[in-house]
């Protein structure tokens, strides 16, 4: 099963780096929230690497 991507609202600085690198268009950065489209996210973890402050993690 694909791993679950978890976003931390407290850490996020809304920089958009994760959206820029996601190859599957699975993220939308709103004004106060990062939306993860569960139907599109494949749990590849690329966005986790791109985030400068570790506001995203993959959970098994």
């Amino acid at each position: 099963m694909a791993k679950l991507l978890v976003w931390s609202r407290d850490k996020c600085v809304f920089c958009g780096g994760c959206v820029a690198v996601c190859p599957h268009d699975a993220l939308i950065l709103h004004s106060k929230e990062l939306e993860i489209l569960s139907g599109k996210c494949v749990g590849c973890g690329i966005c986790v690497k791109g985030c400068p402050i570790s506001a995203l993690v993959l959970e098994a």
């Binding site: 780096g17 959206v19 820029a20 690198v21 190859p23 268009d25 950065l29 690329i46 690497k49 791109g50």
Partner: peptide, 17 residues
């Protein structure tokens, strides 16, 4: 950097890490 307009128009692709 995230340019939704870039991706929606097809002018840019997701950035390689």
């Amino acid at each position: 950097i995230e340019s939704g307009i870039g991706r929606l128009s097809g002018l840019t692709k997701p950035l390689p890490l």
